[in-house]
Design a protein around this nucleic acid. Structure first.
Length: 872
RNA sequence: GGGCUCUUAGCUCAGCUGGUUCAGAGCACCUGCCUUACAAGCAGGGGGUCGGGGGUUCGAAUCCCUCAGGGCCCACCA
């Protein structure tokens, strides 16, 4: 027999396999259909599925599945990102465990390990997505380092270089001493750090006096090239032009003046260290100061430091403070909080460092990307992100795209021995170019050397929506022409600038069109303490464990129950439990229908209930469709949840359910299964597995039929009047149950009901339903008040006569409370209506509504008063 | 430091362009039920002066100002 609880495991595997075998998720350009495309935000190739992916990909799957059911040519492209720095770090760590040092390997050897690693772990996350039910076209799976995509990146680099947008520059960059590479501005996170502000005395060369500066970086004093004061600072006028001696190494440096210096900060004297501070660098340029770089690429002091050579910068900081103290140059130390840049990848403190790097000019490129978001050609959801987006785009700076790494797209720049740069696809082509452009025919491949660096990961991901369709290399191929621009992008706000903005830029540059119409920004999944879920904190449950425990449908719905766009999702296993319970509820409703014996001899007695649910379904469906257009996926799910649980299960099924072991009439049965069919189709995008299982079982299905391709329901007319009548019905039933509860009367005990109403017809129509839902023995209509417990619904009065069981006091209290509330309410309405300005100013039918309220309240008060009189 | 945003029941959130039968939902909680679809369930219930203050208005959770406290983004005071 069918299991009492829904058990997802075998069902999910069975259907996923069925879907894949029948290629329902595969897509080809089809001129007869409207394309609907989503490209997945490619997870890191060696990554493992985490809760953020779960949320993100569930939303994408919902959108894709709905589009597919709506008859669109739905195409969800999956893939992975080589994640240059992240993967390289992992491989380096892996090698270290094996006792291998990256520096002992050749580039090719190292890349060999990277590929080995990629092949070993590369498929995992995509396999995990299948568990979730993701309906990707897996045949289209792409990887940012596969040949076509690799070449696309190289082509784009060359193109932008030739357009003059890419240049090589000696600049201050963000240096990550741990990864020993530069990182872009966006990869630097500022964190507030408790530091020590050290006050140091520099003696004047003249021997006559001294100057005291404040610094957080005493270990860099050996790289000082000046001391700077504000020219308006009266305290220091006499110093300008003099020289000061750097302590410990006794080198003389000039004292200069610049308005950049804040007089209020520290002592108002600044040590200028151009190699190790961005501002100082600018200052140095302005005043023609030399540059002394005393840090090696791993963050240790080099021989330029003269002392403490080889020490790590932080160790050196402590040691030099001691040395300075011993030398008598330490004036004082203050605790000081300031923001320090950290590497997003390694969390190492970023070192401003001068070096030769490749840059992409952003100003021209970002213009259309800014405009088209601001005018909603591309829509950000929620729109509040427009502001931050604009701010970033308006202040965008050139993008440092070179990385001192090996795993990635190697920069296609070649150098001749004299330093001449040639950008070309290959060494051979570089040679040819050199020979022709510079008439250097004697040149051989031996004479040219390729740039050792690779490109920033995002320099490949920004092409993703184009390159997955090979639109860079073959701009007019059928795929890219059909699928591009894509429709929706679902991603985390954290990478709005890293990725989204740059894809938009690339889209306009290389396709002349936006890459996607809508950007749905999900929130961050957090734990109960509000911390972001992360591997390092160990506060994230393993999604695969959760799927095994609760089923994929349970997680999908659980995560979405409370997840409006842009809002963080405070994860609680309770949510997933609720999702699982929802599946179980559906399962048991299904089980109910399976147990019925169907009789075609019985009269069709449930037409009213059927009409009502039809109306309710249409009403909710209309609402759901509207919510989808606004990307309010969470609200849409909640509407479906209520429709199924409250309206279908709690109300409709209870109304039409035959007595135990009694048959059901054929008409009701057919209607009910039809509802089930529609409900499953409506719910399918949210919960693909259980809906397929049930949908396949409630009717004979043809070979290879699937709910995945069944039409999404379309709303019919909603009978509002009927819905309103049923609202009254539910209130009456609810009131009777309430009475039972408070009087301790079993739901099994049949009760007689008397109704005193002006609209008898309405109740007559609902008669049998009230009787069934409230378990009544009899319903009578009365003109006067009668004996019994009474209650009010709207302006109608109800009596249940159970001899000797009336608690007069309690009933009076209830009535008095209701009277008080209604009178208060009436008062406010009357007050409002007697206010001339209200009657004059209120627009539309608001005044009319108020008058109706007044009439209703007055009628109700009369009824209550009568009831009170009756009670004596 | 600049910009954006948020503060509604114990928790997570809805409440659009202002109109008291809108103060809501889910979860949690309390009470009663193992009522043959479902205890992963059923029936019922309590709970918030909508962060504080001021203003606009006939009328404000909904608009404006201000204060307090969160969050996010951007930012080179050593």
């Amino acid at each position: 027999m069918i299991s009492k609880t829904y058990s997802p495991q075998e069902i999910e595997d069975k259907w996923y396999q069925y879907w894949i075998e029948n290629r329902y998720f595969n897509s080809q350009p089809n001129p007869d259909k409207v394309p609907y495309t989503i490209v997945i935000p490619p997870p890191n190739v060696t990554g493992v599925l985490h809760m953020g992916h779960m949320l993100n990909n569930t939303i994408q799957d919902i959108l894709v599945r709905k589009a597919r059911m709506e008859g669109k040519e739905a195409c969800w492209v999956a893939g992975t990102d080589h994640a240059s720095i992240a993967t390289e770090a992992k491989v380096v760590a892996m090698l270290k465990e094996r006792g291998i040092n990256k520096r002992d390997l050749s580039r090719d050897e190292f890349l060999g390990y990277c590929w080995e690693w990629t092949h070993k772990y590369g498929g995992i996350i995509l396999q995990q997505l299948r568990k979730l039910g993701a309906s990707c076209d897996w045949d289209r799976t792409r990887f940012t380092m596969e040949p076509n995509l690799y070449d696309s990146v190289i082509d784009v680099f060359i193109d932008l270089y030739e357009k003059g947008d890419i240049y090589r520059g000696h600049r201050m960059v963000n240096w990550d001493p741990q990864a020993r590479t530069t990182v872009s501005d966006e990869e630097v996170m500022m964190k507030e750090v408790q530091q020590k502000l050290v006050y140091l005395r520099y003696d004047l060369e003249s021997g006559d006096g001294s100057v005291t500066i404040a610094t957080t970086r005493p270990e860099t004093i050996m790289a000082d090239v000046a001391i700077c004061v504000n020219p308006n600072d009266v305290r220091y006028q006499h110093l300008i032009g003099q020289k000061a001696i750097i302590p410990l190494i006794n080198r003389a440096i000039p004292i200069i003046a610049d308005e950049y210096v804040e007089m209020e900060f520290g002592t108002g004297c600044l040590k200028v260290t151009p190699a190790h501070d961005t501002n100082d660098y600018e200052l140095g340029k302005k005043h023609n100061l030399p540059i002394i770089d005393l840090l090696a690429e791993d963050g240790t002091l080099n021989e330029k430091a003269q002392i403490l050579v080889g020490e790590d910068r932080f160790v050196a900081r402590k040691k030099i403070t001691k040395l300075l103290e011993a030398a008598g140059n330490l004036v004082k130390i203050e605790e000081y909080k300031s923001n320090v840049g950290h590497s997003e990848r390694t969390n190492a403190v970023i070192e401003p460092r001068l070096s030769e790097q490749w840059f992409l000019k952003m100003k021209r490129l970002s213009k259309p990307a800014l405009e088209n978001v601001m005018d909603d050609t591309i829509q950000l959801i929620p729109p509040k992100f427009k502001n931050t987006y604009r701010h970033w785009m308006e202040n965008v700076r050139d993008w440092n795209i070179s990385r001192q790494l090996w795993w990635g797209h190697r920069i296609p720049a070649y150098y001749l021995n004299d330093g001449t740069i040639i950008v070309a696809k290959s060494k051979r082509e570089a040679l040819r170019k050199a020979q022709h452009e510079y008439q250097l025919f004697a040149l051989t491949e031996e004479d040219i050397r390729q740039d050792e660096d690779v490109l920033d990961t995002w320099f490949s991901s920004w092409l993703w929506p184009i390159s997955v369709f090979n639109g860079i290399k073959e701009p007019n191929n059928a795929d890219v022409n059909y699928y591009y621009p894509t429709n929706d992008l679902v991603t985390a706000p954290e990478i709005l600038f890293f990725w989204v903005a740059r894809m938009i830029i690339a889209g306009y540059e290389y396709r002349g069109a936006y890459p996607f119409k809508n950007v749905y920004l999900t929130g961050i999944v957090r734990d109960k303490l509000g911390r972001k879920m992360s591997k390092s904190l160990g506060n994230s449950p393993d999604p695969i464990d959760l799927i095994e425990k609760y089923g994929a449908d349970g997680i999908r719905t659980g995560m979405l129950f409370s997840s409006p766009a842009g809002n963080d999702l405070p994860y609680d296993e309770k949510l997933v439990e609720q999702g699982r319970n929802f599946c179980n509820k559906i399962w048991n409703a299904f089980r109910l229908t399976q147990g019925w014996e169907v009789s075609s001899d019985l009269p069709a007695i449930n037409q009213l209930a059927i009409d009502w649910f039809e109306a309710k379904f249409n009403q909710t469906l209309t609402e759901v469709l509207d919510l989808f257009t606004k990307f309010r996926i969470s609200d849409a799910l909640n509407a479906v949840y209520k429709l199924i649980w409250d309206d279908f299960c709690a109300q409709y099924l209870e109304m039409i359910k035959p007595e135990y072991q009694q048959p059901i009439d054929a008409a009701t049965y057919a209607a009910t299964l039809d509802f089930f069919d529609k409900l499953m189709r409506l719910a399918h995008p949210f919960m693909p597995f259980i809906t397929e299982e049930i949908w396949q079982n409630i009717a004979e299905r043809a070979e290879k039929e699937t709910i995945c391709l069944a039409p999404f329901p379309q709303p019919g007319a909603t009978n509002l009047e009927l819905l309103a009548d049923f609202e009254v019905l539910f209130e009456v039933v609810s009131a009777i149950r309430n009475l039972r509860n408070s009087k301790g009367i079993s739901p099994k005990t049949e009760l007689p009901l008397a109704i005193r109403t002006d609209s008898e017809a309405r109740y007559l129509r609902l008669d049998s339903l009230v009787r069934k839902l409230a378990n009544l023995s009899d319903i009578t209509y009365v003109k006067e008040q009668v004996e019994g417990m009474s209650f009010l619904v709207r302006s109608d009065e109800f009596f249940i006569n159970l001899a000797g069981d009336i608690d007069v006091e309690a009933e009076r209290e209830t009535l008095l409370a209701e009277l008080k509330y209604t009178e208060g309410f009436l008062d406010s309405v009357v007050k409002k209506l007697s206010n001339e300005r209200f009657v004059q100013n209120a627009k539309g039918d608001i005044v009319e509504k108020e008058r109706q309220k007044q009439a209703d309240a007055e009628a109700k008060i009369v009824t209550i008063k009568e009831a009170l009189v009756r009670l004596g």
